[in-house]
Simulated assay, not measured.
Amino acid sequence: MSSPCDPKHAPAGDVGSALMMIDSRLKAVHEGRTEPDPEQQALISQFAASLGPGEADDVLDGACTLIFLFMKWLRLAYEDHDKDVIEYVVPNLVGTMRMLPKSIRPEAIPTMIGLVVAAGTGLSPSLWRKQYGYWTREEMTPLEVTAFLLAEQINRLTDDQDFATRMVTEALFRADGD
C-alpha cells in the first residue's frame, strides 16, 4: 500500500534556491564567519522579499527535497557500514539544535526531527509536515538549520566541504539533461 507521504506524490520545489541559501551558510561557516556576509545576506533577503506566496512554498518544498536527498545519501552511507541512519543522525541534530536556542525554539526541534525521520524512512518530509498544517514563521530558521546540518554532516563524512552541494548540483544537471 502506498503512503500519502510517498515522495512520488511530493513536489520537488525550488531546489536550486534552497540549495543556494544552504550553500551560502556553509561557505560562511567554512570561512570562519560567525555573522552572515552583509552583502550575501542582503541578496538573500532581497530574493526572499521578491517571492510570491507560491514561490515561497516552492522554496520550502525545495528545502524539504534537500533534506530528503541528504538523508537518502546518509542512509545509504550508513547502511554500507551496517549502521542505522536515524541512530547516527538524530542525536547529533538534537544536540546541535539544543545549543542554538536563539535560532531554534525548543518546540521546533521535534518537528525538524520528524522531517528527518520521515526522510530517513523514505517518506517525503514536505508531505509529512503538511499533515499537521501549514508551515509557521517560527519553523523557517529551524528548517534551514536542519538542511544545513545534514549537508555539513555529509561534508564531514566525506572530508569535502563542498560535497553535499556538489552532489545536489550534479543531480540537478543530470535531471535537466534527461
Rank of each mutant, 00 (worst) to 15 (best):
E87D: 08
Q131L: 10
M97G: 07
T169C: 09
F148T: 00
V117N: 09
W135H: 14
G114P: 00
L127N: 02
A151I: 09
I86V: 05
V116C: 10
A119L: 05
V168Q: 03
E107H: 10
Y134S: 15
E152F: 02
G95P: 00
T141K: 15
E87V: 14
S124N: 04
V89A: 13
E152P: 02
P125M: 05
Y88T: 11
M140K: 15
V168E: 01
T136M: 13
V89H: 06
P125F: 03
T121P: 11
V90W: 00
T146D: 03
G95Y: 01
A147S: 02
D162W: 03
T146W: 03
Q161K: 15
A151V: 02
L143Y: 07
N92T: 14
T141G: 09
T165I: 01
E144L: 15
S103M: 14
V94Q: 12
G114T: 03
P101R: 11
V117A: 09
G114A: 06
L149C: 12
P106D: 06
G95T: 08
L150N: 08
R105A: 14
E138Q: 07
I104Q: 01
L149K: 08
I109L: 02
V94H: 10
V116W: 09
D160L: 06
I86W: 04
R105W: 04
K102F: 15
G122H: 01
V168M: 03
M140V: 15
G114Y: 08
G120D: 05
V117R: 15
A164D: 00
I154V: 06
P110Y: 06
R129T: 08
I109D: 00
A108W: 02
A147N: 02
V94A: 07
K102M: 13
P91D: 07
L150G: 02
P106Q: 03
L127K: 01
I109Q: 00
R137T: 14
S103I: 07
V117G: 12
M99R: 13
Y88D: 13
P125A: 05
R105G: 13
T146A: 12
E139G: 11
A151W: 01
L143V: 09
R156M: 05
L150A: 01
Q131H: 12
T111N: 11
L150W: 04
K130Y: 08
D159P: 03
Q131W: 08
T111Y: 11
Q153H: 12
L100P: 01
T121M: 12
W135I: 13
I86T: 08
G122E: 06
Q131E: 08
D160W: 04
A171D: 10
A118H: 03
A151P: 01
E138W: 06
M99I: 10
G114K: 09
A151Y: 02
F148C: 00
Y132M: 00
E87Y: 03
D162L: 06
A147W: 01
P110N: 05
V168R: 00
D159I: 10
A119W: 02
V89E: 11
P142L: 10
W135L: 10
V94Y: 06
A119V: 06
D160M: 04
P101H: 12
Q131K: 09
I86F: 06
E170P: 03
L157P: 05
E170Y: 05
N92C: 14
I86S: 04
Q153R: 07
F163T: 01
L157S: 03
T136R: 14
